[in-house]
Design a protein around this nucleic acid. Structure first.
Length: 203
DNA sequence: TAGGCCATCTGGTCCT
DNA sequence: AGGACCAGATGGCCTA
């Protein structure tokens, strides 16, 4: 979308009273003692240079954010989709990805612990390129419980302010054990079940 | 209408 | 010096 300011660029003081352009933007009621300074040619050049730099910086920043959003979209694509196809918000995407990665690694870990594990078969090892992507086949072990439906949050935390308080029992802990429940009967798929499932009426 | 999410602008800081 | 990154501010859009 075009910037709402695109029409304003030529006179940013309308919207950004504290910009470099401040000097040109005589405040509505200039202080009495303040004499209006006339800008000489040199100052005008400096002003134009500054403004150009700002415009370029804005452009770069916009591109940077677009790249970030593209990466986020790419991430959304590899995450399990949800029935109602509601697009995950940015924070939800990140939290869900975190949970998802953790669930996958837990699944691998548990599979490795099992005697005569299926992982002994070629193609079942985590790094085995011959294996299908987990979750691609309907018959796969139900790691991905797509029944978790979007609501408002990817996990059971409330991002309330400080980093300490925003440390959920689940999401912000180390990827190795997001829930801190490693040997308490916690199943990897619970990580995905937990997704957005704390919203009343959603799950 | 309030609240959530988002895009954009902006100035500061760090890095090359 | 200029670019990358970051966080704060602002305003638009959408939904409950």
């Amino acid at each position: 979308m075009d910037s709402v300011y695109s029409d304003i660029d030529s006179n940013s003081c309308d919207f950004f009273p504290h910009t470099d352009d401040e000097e040109d933007c005589a405040s509505p009621e200039p202080e009495p003692q303040q004499k209006k300074r006339r800008r000489g040619r040199g100052q005008a050049v400096v002003h134009v240079v500054k403004k150009n730099r700002r415009v370029k910086a804005n452009d770069r920043e916009r591109n940077r954010m677009h790249n970030l959003n593209d990466a986020l979209d790419t991430l959304r694509e590899v995450l399990p989709a949800f029935p109602d196809e509601t697009k995950l918000t940015k924070i939800e995407t990140l939290r869900f990805a975190h949970n998802y990665i953790w669930a996958l690694s837990e699944t691998i870990r548990i599979a490795d612990l099992q005697p005569g594990r299926p992982g002994d078969r070629p193609g079942d090892r985590p790094g085995d390129k011959t294996g299908d992507r987990t979750g691609d086949r309907p018959g796969d072990k139900p790691l991905l419980l797509g029944s978790a439906s979007p609501g408002s949050d990817a996990c059971s935390w409330s991002s309330s302010g400080s980093s300490s308080s925003s440390s959920p029992s689940y999401c912000a802990s180390s990827p190795g054990s997001p829930a801190g429940t490693e040997d308490y009967g916690y199943r990897p798929q619970d990580a995905l079940f937990g997704f957005r499932s704390f919203v009343p009426g959603v799950y």
